[in-house]
Design a binder for these strands. Sequence first.
DNA 1: TTGAAAGCGCTAACAT
DNA 2: ATGTTAGCGCTTTCAA
Lengths: 336, 336
Amino acid sequence: MTPRKAVPARPTMRDIAAQAGVSPMSVSRALSGGPGVSERTRAEVLAAVQALGYQPNEFARQLRTGGPTHVIALVVTHLANPFYAALALGVERVASAHGSRVMIMSTMSDLDTEREVVADLRRRPVDGVIIIPATPDHRHLKELADQGRPMVFATTPPNGIDADSVTVDDFGGMRELCSQLLADGHTRIGLIGLNHAMWTGSERLRGYSAAHAEAGVEVDDKLITERAGDIASATKATLRLLRLHQPPTAVIATNNLMTIGALRAVRDTGARAAVAGFDDIEVADLFQQPLTVVRYEAEQLGVRSAEQLFVRLAQDDDKAAGPTRELITTTIVRYG
Amino acid sequence: MTPRKAVPARPTMRDIAAQAGVSPMSVSRALSGGPGVSERTRAEVLAAVQALGYQPNEFARQLRTGGPTHVIALVVTHLANPFYAALALGVERVASAHGSRVMIMSTMSDLDTEREVVADLRRRPVDGVIIIPATPDHRHLKELADQGRPMVFATTPPNGIDADSVTVDDFGGMRELCSQLLADGHTRIGLIGLNHAMWTGSERLRGYSAAHAEAGVEVDDKLITERAGDIASATKATLRLLRLHQPPTAVIATNNLMTIGALRAVRDTGARAAVAGFDDIEVADLFQQPLTVVRYEAEQLGVRSAEQLFVRLAQDDDKAAGPTRELITTTIVRYG
DNA sequence: TTGAAAGCGCTAACAT
DNA sequence: ATGTTAGCGCTTTCAA
């Protein structure tokens, strides 16, 4: 942490009061637009504000009134993933409409980083928090929630915490996608980059299994590859599957990054395996390979999460209802 | 469902002091780790902190000390554009290393929205601001800067403001890209979605012109299409060019969105025009059409901007040097 | 080593 | 309609 100079001195209400020849209280009243100020005083105050370029200090006001800070926090895993960027934009849009700003923090899917971020949030008076949890361990998040901070969990429901959530229909989306592949005649379908430990991962696996069961096709565990962190490892995992004695005729990637990796692997081997994946890819129509995806509105996920948060913020604590669970629906899209 | 338990008001330092049987001052000292506290007192304070789940209020501290808020603002045009998302991630990484958080605001390239955002920032004690200006009109930004707020301009230098900037080598990148196309034998090269009014636009046009001049090829103004706001209008603009009596044999798109639009137009018409563009596209290797791009590290742009901001924040006002201008270099990448 | 007093910038509550 | 007092949660200053 580098040393810093203090924020440059800004004029305060006292300065305005002095300049306008009134008391600070009159300045406060004049600026808040409330009644009890003569037009003449108000005019003089506004003139002084203009002259000195005064801007009220929101922190001080908030400290005194105990009112909202008009800042909400958004904790994501990786902002550069277009999916989270879209979600963030949705959150920002809603926050903006409510006069609030968004503080964004990326955890890079690292539990320790998430802990740090959360510790920071406990000290910082933000009005509420929207979080995409990095891991299934939510103990530190419970401490935040217990502080009385309204929280909304996005993409993953809370684990042992009494909080709202907005999630994607991971199960239904994967089941439908997988069913279509099975209907196309595929009986050996690979699953790339599954993370059993995460809620989304287990839900998507459940959908995969359900589709197989409904089609009366047995699942071969050798076709399910373990968690892959990035595109390159998704490519490797896919290559491993394609080299099996009985390779899959189709692969399903468990998120947008895994999809890119899988496409590269199939292209490089010249295999004729069909590729499908969770998460839409905006430019998939330009790909040389056909692709089927589970699409849902990432921005909408952010919008709904933020709206739910503001509902909570507007609520009286006493008559607050139990946690809500909202589901974002999915559709299947075929490219090429 | 369990009724949400009444939120306990956040404990303050006084509560800790009472619980530990000491004065608030001792609590402050114990927590700040400073000298002048007996081990016994410190232990009792820490125990009380644990017992009550106390977290200091950073605002109150900041108000009293006048120190930094450890919040910086990042104003971008559109967070969902992968380019700005990457930039934001770079900013966040550096900020995090300096113990600061990032408040992100998207202007959607709208001047009025930018004005609102800036007005908000004038009231909110953030330590500094990194901005990608939405338009060439920087008057409202000057008011922010005049307040003494350290500012760094990213992608576009300030207009009449004494502030640092980090920009891309728009001119050099475009000149090199265009030169390569000319060397490939193209003499009619379209330019898609140029925004003359923006600094980046004029720089890129300058590079386009310079390359033509160096190659001794005359520029045909009919090949230069006006500003296009989104992918769809880029497609339309490209289609218009391709239908010209003497159509271009190559088109250069002026940013990543324009590139997508141009690729779609060329694909849909089955034209044989080569496509090139400013900004890299991560999955371009999967495209069915060849593509040449001007690549640069978007995240690095964010990193350098943030680093420059923290340099300013660490500086004494008196011995502050003049504005710095940093250039991010570009390379040409051919896909397919 | 500890505490009491004062004040950061602002506003609620009570004067006048 | 205006001003005075007090205090939000914290820390600096000064006294004990």
